[in-house]
Structure formats: C-alpha cells, structure tokens
C-alpha cells in the first residue's frame, strides 16, 4: 500500500451518470503529490466531469474519490475540507464582477480561512505579483483582458494556499495572443512543485511540464503514459485518431 501522504488524489472505480447517460465509466486514477497530469480527449469525453468530481462540483454515484486523505462524500465537513485544499481555475474565468481584483482574491481567505484583511491583502498582492499583474489590483474584472482575467483567477485560487490545483480548459476561451501568458504562469506554478490536474488541448504545455498525459474518450480512460511516449508512440487506435486530428 502506498504512503497516503504521498498520494494527492486517488480515484477508484468511479462511475457517474447524468440521468440515464453514463458519463464516467470505471475511472481509476492515482495522482501523486507534486505530479502534473494533463487530461485530453474529444469534447464530451468526460474530462471536465472527472475533475469537477474531485471538488464535488459534480457528484459521483459509484466508487471512491480520496483527496489528500479525505474521502469526497455527501458529508459537508469533508466537502469543506476538500474545497479549501483544492483550487480550481475555470474556462470562463468566473471572476466576481462586482468586486475588484484585490477583493476577488481576499474574499475567500477572509471569510473561509478567517485571516485578517491586512494579511489577506498582503498574500493577495504577493500572488498577483507572481502572476505578474500587481498593478491591476484596484481594477474591476470587466476592465481587464481575457488573459489578465484568467491570471487573476489563478492568483485567486492560489490565495487559499491549495495543495492541488485543477484547471478546466483554462486557455480555451482566450484569444490566441493571450494563451501564452497564461501557459507561462502555469509552467512557473508547475516548476514550484504544485500538484496540477489540467484538462487542456495545449499539447506544448503537456510536453514541457506534464509527468503523465491521460487520454479519455466516451467517459473512460483509454490511455495513460509519459508525454514523450504518449505523443511518439500511442498504442490505442482512438488515441492515434485523436492525435492525428490535433497535431
């Protein structure tokens, strides 16, 4: 049995249905601490559903999901613990438009971690510097470009000092010239040792940073491998088909 503290996320035999539609079929996945996973696959394959089950934005009906030693169930206390330690970045950014950038970042630390406002702002400014937009702290999300908004979203998630970061297609809604700035931020995050599970089509990012690439189709994991092996010699025909379409 592996040492529990070294496993960040463990999913065993996870199934999920939307009504009668079988969205996730027998998912088995183990993510070690500090590991970077990139999940790819055609649309509708269940990639987003998978990571949204990790922080209980979606409910799984069968199987077990254990995040940092805590099992994800209906128990509100477990859900709270998991959500504090897991950060998420969305495709549509989902910044709070009625709050400034700084307020977006300090909201959760103040109200959930009960940190003093001054300390929360210090932490927020530090992370805003890390994503390289400290000067935007007083602006509102509506005044920023897409790339800037997504970087704020990353900083906002980091302000809660999560142990694991989930990314749901973070660059899919961005104009091409802004994709690089966000990917650079994510690469820097990876180099600092953050455990990351990223759903993305950006294969360059996968090659540079990922420990493993996971290919999903029709709700199941088809193939998993290290990036080099994954891209140069895919085994399954579905994987080959998918790679031929995007590379």
């Amino acid at each position: 049995m592996s040492n529990a503290s070294e496993t960040a996320v463990e999913m065993t035999g996870v199934h999920k249905w939307y009504g009668a539609f079988h969205a996730l079929k027998d998912i088995n996945l183990k993510v070690a601490r500090g590991e970077r996973i990139v999940i790819c696959g055609p649309s509708g394959s269940g990639k987003s559903t998978l990571i949204r089950c990790i922080n209980r934005l979606e409910e799984h009906q069968r199987g077990r999901i254990i995040v940092d030693g805590v099992e994800v169930t209906d128990d509100l206390r477990n859900i709270d613990k998991v959500r504090r330690d897991v950060g998420m970045v969305f495709q549509q950014f989902n910044l709070f438009p009625h709050l400034t950038v700084l307020e977006n970042c300090t909201l959760a630390p103040i109200w959930v971690r009960r940190i003093r406002k001054k300390d929360a702002e210090e932490i927020a400014m530090r992370y805003l510097e890390r994503v390289r937009i400290p000067e935007q702290a007083g602006k509102y999300p509506g005044q920023l470009s897409g790339g800037q908004q997504q970087r704020v979203a990353i900083a906002r998630a980091l302000c809660m000092s999560p142990k694991i970061m989930l990314f749901d297609e973070p660059t899919s809604a961005l104009d091409p010239e802004m994709v690089k700035e966000v990917l650079d931020t994510m690469v820097a995050l990876a180099r600092d040792g953050m455990t990351m599970i990223v759903v993305s089509h950006e294969m360059g990012f996968a090659r540079e940073v990922a420990n493993r690439v996971v290919f999903m189709d029709e709700g199941q994991i088809i193939e998993m491998n290290e990036p080099e092996a994954f891209f140069s010699s895919p085994q399954h025909e579905r994987t080959k088909l998918f790679l031929s379409q995007i590379l």
Binding site: H15, W17, K25, D26, V31, E223, M224, N225
Partner: peptide, 19 residues
Amino acid sequence: IPANADFVRLQLSASLPPP
C-alpha cells in the same frame, strides 16, 4: 488495472444503466 502505471485500455466498456 493498476491506477497510476502507464496504461492502455484493451477493451472498451459499454454504457451501464444508472443505479
């Protein structure tokens, strides 16, 4: 199937009815 090894699915699963 081991949960974190390099992995290739041999047989695709069919859709099951919900519990």
